[in-house]
Amino acid sequence: MKKIINDPTDVVTESLAGFGAAHSDIVRVVDDPLYVVRVDAPVAGKVGLVSGGGSGHEPLHAGYVGAGMLDAAVPGAMFTSPTPDPIVAATRAVDSGAGVLHIVKNYTGDVLNFEMAAELAGAEGTRVTTVVVDDDVAVQDSTWTAGRRGVGGTVLLEKIVGAAAERGDDLDAVTALASKVNAQVRSMGLALSACTVPHAGEPSFVLGDDEIELGVGIHGEPGRERRKIAKADVLVGLLLDPIVADLPFSSGDRVLLFVNGMGGTPLSELYLAYNTARNSLQDKGITVERSLVGNYITALEMQGMSLTVLKLDDEMIELWDAPVRTAALRKGV
């Protein structure tokens, strides 16, 4: 294992200390219990947005804390859900009296711990609603989650819903919008190589030199099948075809196309894949209105990519285009 670390058990806390120092104009890192919050929280009259999950997926979620997106993020240990205590603390820190929405990826630990935190915060008088993101079409069930996993669609949801909260929408409206985005977004990924969790010290799985894992999860959990590597056009089709068929997307739809790197894939390859996916969608009569390409929800240093397609309407386009100022995503400010 070759990593730029000190003690494997201190990676998350040391990394977040650096993150907080580098972006002190946007976020504040609270040590005990551990969470990241925007510097101006709580914002008067504004619905608070809290998300979180295991570390190792950076910039998700701390990188999306700031104006126009999340109000707080709660990181757990590497690939491990945060416990309820820091989730409650983060919820309390962003509650201005307008209520708080929890955005939770569909992994058993995340769902259970955020559920318990919502109950505890509710007992303190905070109104909390929850939306569980489950956009991964690769599997229905796995050893890591009950039902579909929450993956790339989480980033798009946090941006769109964050803009709605920033403009002053109330908790019911923000929650309904989050449910709508989740219902209209689909994702699927593939891995060319495994990742190594620091405290494990060895790759999470082994692929042959000529193999890929199709439908892999963001923790390296298995997908639909293991198969031989192929040209980019073929690989894109293996991801895009199940996505389009699942909603289903159809001719006349307007979409946001998100090509995401898993942490170890060059941008040149991601843009190549984007071009293939965009052309394929256009051939189906589906218009790509908005795009996002890059490493936005990763699995440490895993080589691979995921595709996410979100069906848009006029309101979602307006909210996607709205200003945002976070460490990982900025526009209009």
Rank of each mutant, 00 (worst) to 15 (best):
N6R: 07
D7E: 09
D7A: 11
P8L: 04
L16G: 07
A21C: 02
A22P: 10
R28K: 11
V29F: 03
P33V: 06
Y35L: 03
R38E: 12
V39W: 03
V39I: 15
A41S: 15
A41R: 04
P42I: 05
K46Q: 14
V47T: 00
V50Y: 13
G52D: 10
G56F: 13
H57D: 09
E58K: 05
A73H: 01
V74I: 14
P75H: 06
A77E: 13
M78E: 01
S81D: 02
P84E: 01
I87W: 06
T91M: 04
T91A: 05
D95I: 05
D95W: 11
G99P: 08
V104M: 06
K105D: 10
Y107F: 15
T108L: 13
D110Q: 08
V111F: 04
N113S: 14
A123F: 12
V128I: 15
T129L: 13
T130V: 15
V132E: 00
V132W: 05
Q140T: 08
W144N: 02
L157V: 01
I160S: 05
A165D: 04
R167F: 12
L171T: 12
L171G: 07
V174A: 07
A178W: 07
Q184H: 08
V185R: 06
M188Y: 04
G189D: 02
L192K: 02
A194I: 04
A194D: 08
A194R: 00
C195Q: 07
V197F: 06
P198E: 02
P198F: 00
V206I: 10
L207V: 03
L207T: 14
G208Q: 13
D209A: 13
I212W: 04
G220C: 06
R224P: 03
R226G: 01
R226T: 12
I229W: 06
A230L: 04
D241S: 15
I243D: 00
G252V: 14
L256I: 04
N260S: 02
M262T: 13
G263W: 05
G264A: 05
L267T: 12
L267W: 10
L272T: 13
A273D: 02
T276K: 13
A277P: 07
T287Y: 09
V288N: 05
E289W: 12
R290L: 12
S291H: 10
Y296R: 14
T298M: 01
A299H: 05
M305T: 14
S306L: 01
T308A: 12
T308E: 01
K311H: 04
L312C: 06
E318N: 04
D321P: 07
L329Q: 14
R330A: 13
K331N: 11
V333Q: 12
